Every structure is written in structure tokens, then in C-alpha cells.
Computed example of a mutant assay.
Amino acid sequence: MRVSVQEAPFDLGAETAQFAAGQQTMGAVVTFTGVVRDSDAGTLEVMEIEHYPGMTERALTEIAGEAQRRWSLGDVLVIHRHGSLTPGEMIMMVATAARHRKDAFEAAEFLMDYLKSRAPFWKREVTDQGTDWVAARDEDEDALSRW
């Protein structure tokens, strides 16, 4: 298991290849990459993502461990960026490896739902209309409630 909270961009292809290497006993590798999208409140200039170092890594490590306990996973990778990101930049990546695809897909969805609704990050959108903190969305909480 690897969890990384970082400011620097990551190389999706290299991370995926490194994660998949050595997974000879696993029949499925699932990856998901989140990308900064434009805002509904105006043209997004930048997404500012803040976190508390130490606390965030611990929380993400705990949830990755929870995924390993709930599903039969061989490995888990979670990368989440912080700092100032522009539309189109990769913001996060989740990868899961399992003997069977169902476990890999479900665990990846569980991790993504957690990251979207509960991970300790604070996001502020800077648009051509001003600056606003991103509020929690009911649909994200609903998605997490199924787990």
C-alpha cells in the first residue's frame, strides 16, 4: 500500500506501470484519475487545495487499510495533490489490485467516494466571478452511504 499527498504533478502512465508491476497473482488492476474541471460558478482560474500534513496522510492510510480489509486486495495506491491546480490537471489517482475484478472495482469506488466526501482537504475555487470554498454535496454523501 502506498499513499502520497503531494504538490507535484504525477505521471499517470509511470504510476500505473509501477503499480501493476509485480502483480502476477492478481487478475485485475483498476485505476481512476480525477481531473480538475471547470466550475459551475464561472470560468475556473485555479483550484486551491489545502490540507493538514500528517493528519491527511493518516486519514488516507486508514481508509486504504479499510479497503484492504473489506475486499481481497493485493495492493492499493492513493495519490492526492494539494496546492494550486488549473483545469485539466490531474488532482488524484486511486489504483487497486485484486485476484478478481469485482473486488478491484468495488474497492476503487469505495476509495473514490471517501476521497470525494470525507478526505480532509479543503478546496477553494478562484473563478472569473470571485473566490468560493467548495461545499460538500449531498450526492457525494449519498454515494459514500452505500458502503
Rank of each mutant, 00 (worst) to 15 (best):
I91F: 08
S117G: 09
E89Q: 14
G42T: 04
T31L: 15
A108N: 08
E57S: 00
T96L: 08
L144P: 05
Q23V: 04
D132P: 07
S84N: 12
M47K: 08
R118K: 15
T31E: 15
G65I: 01
L111I: 02
D103Q: 07
I79F: 14
W122I: 04
Q68A: 12
M92A: 12
F19C: 00
S39M: 04
D140E: 13
E48F: 09
G27H: 04
V46M: 08
P53E: 00
V3L: 00
L85S: 03
R124H: 13
T127Q: 06
I79C: 11
R124M: 15
V5G: 00
A64C: 09
V76T: 12
A98G: 10
T86C: 11
L77S: 08
M47N: 09
M1W: 04
E139S: 13
E62S: 10
S145K: 15
D128F: 07
Q24L: 11
R70I: 01
A14H: 11
A104E: 01
G13M: 10
G27M: 01
Q6G: 10
T61Q: 12
E106Y: 05
T25R: 09
S84D: 14
E15Y: 09
M55K: 11
M26I: 00
Q24G: 06
G65L: 02
R69E: 12
G13I: 07
R2P: 04
Q18S: 14
T96A: 11
G27K: 05
R37M: 02
V3T: 01
E141R: 15
A107W: 05
L60M: 11
D132W: 06
G22P: 00
E45N: 15
E141A: 15
D113E: 12
D40Y: 02
V5T: 01
A104F: 10
M112L: 11
T96R: 07
E141M: 15
A64I: 07
S72R: 06
V46Y: 06
D103N: 10
P87C: 02
P87R: 02
E89V: 07
D75Q: 12
A8F: 10
T131G: 08
H80R: 07
Y52S: 01
